[in-house]
Write a protein that binds this DNA or RNA. Sequence first.
DNA 1: AATCAGAGTATGTCCTAACAAACGGACATG
DNA 2: CATGTCCGTTTGTTAGGACATACTCTGATT
Lengths: 246, 246
Amino acid sequence: MANQLRLSIDRSSPVPLYHQVVQGIEAAIHTGLLEPGSRLENEIDLAAQLNLSRPTMRKAMDELVRSGLLVRKRGVGTQVVSSQVRRPLELSSLYDDLTNNGSKPTTEVLTFAHIEADAATREALHLAAGAKVYHFTRLRKVGGKPLALMENWVRDDITHIDEDLLKAQGLYGILRSGGVNFRLATQRIGAMVANDYQAPLLETEPGSALVTMERTAVDDTGRNVETGHHVYRGDSYSFEMTLVQR
Amino acid sequence: MANQLRLSIDRSSPVPLYHQVVQGIEAAIHTGLLEPGSRLENEIDLAAQLNLSRPTMRKAMDELVRSGLLVRKRGVGTQVVSSQVRRPLELSSLYDDLTNNGSKPTTEVLTFAHIEADAATREALHLAAGAKVYHFTRLRKVGGKPLALMENWVRDDITHIDEDLLKAQGLYGILRSGGVNFRLATQRIGAMVANDYQAPLLETEPGSALVTMERTAVDDTGRNVETGHHVYRGDSYSFEMTLVQR
DNA sequence: AATCAGAGTATGTCCTAACAAACGGACATG
DNA sequence: CATGTCCGTTTGTTAGGACATACTCTGATT
């Protein structure tokens, strides 16, 4: 089979070598140079061809296996699984997802307040009694069509937030500009039916299906930065993801 | 801070050393020995204490970072993020999840057939025209209460399937016994409202919220083994997951 | 001819070693 | 006093080697 992968590695680039390999193989798979089901050469030969050490090559393949593009079998070899693997659910905001997608989302800020956190919020954000948070609800539209109704609570000791900022960009963009490095988030996805408050805002009927998401995000210092409760129109939004066996 | 982690490593065990470290640290975090926010000793000292090399220690920490239990920062150190991290959504069946949870699910097979695959199924499973598949719908209950209504299509060239098998165990269990090694799955989660067919089966009202999931699973040979469309009662099921920034 | 053992191959695990880069605090300088 | 620079600490990247283990295929044996 011996696919000729003519990857080029730039050793003067600040991008780590293993990551250059990841990008190269990803590109080869997406452009169809490496077809699903085809076998790659063995790690040692590939490493030798690129003048890389085996650990570096392995680290690259590890990432590709984790992301679901490759499959390894001991004693057999490494195989391309699929060309159309979705990126695993990313730690990104809806706003980022939409703009990356070429859409132009708009945001309406329905309510905005700087208030003392209630018990549930203090619990979610690990705040002391009396701490204050930003609380706001937003309506996100794409192409003039409402998509999501979002309610969030954000610590106020990170960066200043106001209505104008929220109108102009996504929450995660604001927080990142404020120096937050997100590390992980826990979220829960479920379903509910639209109530009399949600339905007119989302321009749908009470009783129609909504996808719900609750999320709490943590930054690299271990602070719970943000928690939110979002609902999406069920007829125009769903969560797509790839699960990889480990 | 210097937390004393008294892990023990068994070099005669078939369990890889790095995985023993993962298990040890996981246990320490869950038992509260390592509190959220506390800093671990640096990699080199930890490795030395256990008589391990630094790469081995790093590989263990890599896994813990990926799973969201730890956070690393160059020049600073490694920190415990949270003790209550959910396992990332696993490549497992609902049946496995429930039995691991201590519940005792029951399964009713509503329909069962061995039929020629329609166009959508051939597309999803990458089958040639005329290929046959198993097609069945099941109702899963826990504690006598209906939870999920599941419709699946499965290749017939893997292992024999019949109603009795489906009644006794989960689909993934059957397929695994038949020699299938699952590698990855793509799935989509959304919402809908119960229709007149679903509602009575799930013992709920038409118009109530349902969580929907569509999934296609791939095994280690690259075959698309199974595809399904499931609906869950929105008031008793949701998907929980942890997203990790990479 | 069927079955089993072994060789070959590829990934899995583990080691030592070194340098790079980012972070934070201490210290020196204006 | 404020600011910038340097340095120690810690993680990030890369190399090269060694042995273990699982799988496949082939050849020998029964």
